[in-house]
Amino acid sequence: MTIERQDMNTRMSKIVKHNGTVYLAGQLCKPEDESLDLSGQTQSMLDKVDGLLIKAGSDRNHILSAAIFVSDMSKVNDMNAVYDAWVPQGHCPVRYCVEAQFARKELLVEISIVAAEIE
């Protein structure tokens, strides 16, 4: 079985594909959006996920799992409002959301995605 790695550097790959499954590295907002609030950073992050899913041969309808990390759980509803509008109705993945401390205080949210390739 072949493992395909895309957008690699010395530490990680942004995309790994194996046996019809797509694994995305944790995604943050775009660097130019780090000054935005949690809702804005969530939208920026999900826009990046959309691009990576397309590049990997998948899309939102094929997401299997989403792991979300937020810097402050008291504001999770702000993230959920954006996330809920982004996930296609009837295609909700398995998901968990936890509070996490990030490397820089400006960062508020991160997501890691597992998806199926489009056949």
Rank of each mutant, 00 (worst) to 15 (best):
R11P: 00
S71F: 03
G20N: 11
A81N: 08
A66D: 06
H18K: 13
I113T: 03
P93Q: 10
L52A: 05
Q89H: 13
Q6F: 12
D59Y: 02
S39A: 15
N77F: 05
L24F: 04
E32A: 14
S112L: 05
K48V: 07
C92W: 04
Q89K: 12
M45V: 00
V114A: 05
A100G: 09
R60T: 02
R95V: 06
L108M: 14
A115Q: 05
Q89Y: 15
A115L: 06
I54W: 02
V114E: 10
F69I: 01
P31K: 08
A25P: 01
V109A: 08
S39R: 14
A116D: 06
D84T: 02
A66C: 11
H18Q: 12
L38S: 03
V87F: 03
P88H: 14
S39E: 15
M8Y: 05
N19E: 14
A66K: 06
L38I: 13
E32R: 09
M73S: 12
M45H: 07
G20I: 10
R5V: 06
F69T: 04
I63V: 13
T2C: 04
A81E: 09
N61W: 03
M73A: 11
G90T: 07
N9M: 11
Q43N: 11
G26D: 14
D72F: 04
L28S: 07
R104M: 14
E99G: 10
L24Q: 07
V49Y: 01
L108T: 00
H91T: 02
P93M: 05
R104D: 15
E117V: 13
D78C: 06
R5N: 11
H91A: 05
M79D: 01
L28E: 10
F69V: 03
K105D: 12
A66F: 04
F69K: 15
E99L: 08
Q43K: 15
Q101K: 14
M1Q: 10
M8K: 12
V49P: 01
C92S: 09
M73V: 11
M79F: 12
K30S: 11
Y23R: 09
R60C: 00
V109N: 02
V98Q: 10
L108W: 00
G20E: 10
T42K: 07
N77Q: 09
H91M: 06
R95C: 05
N61Q: 10
K75G: 04
N80S: 13
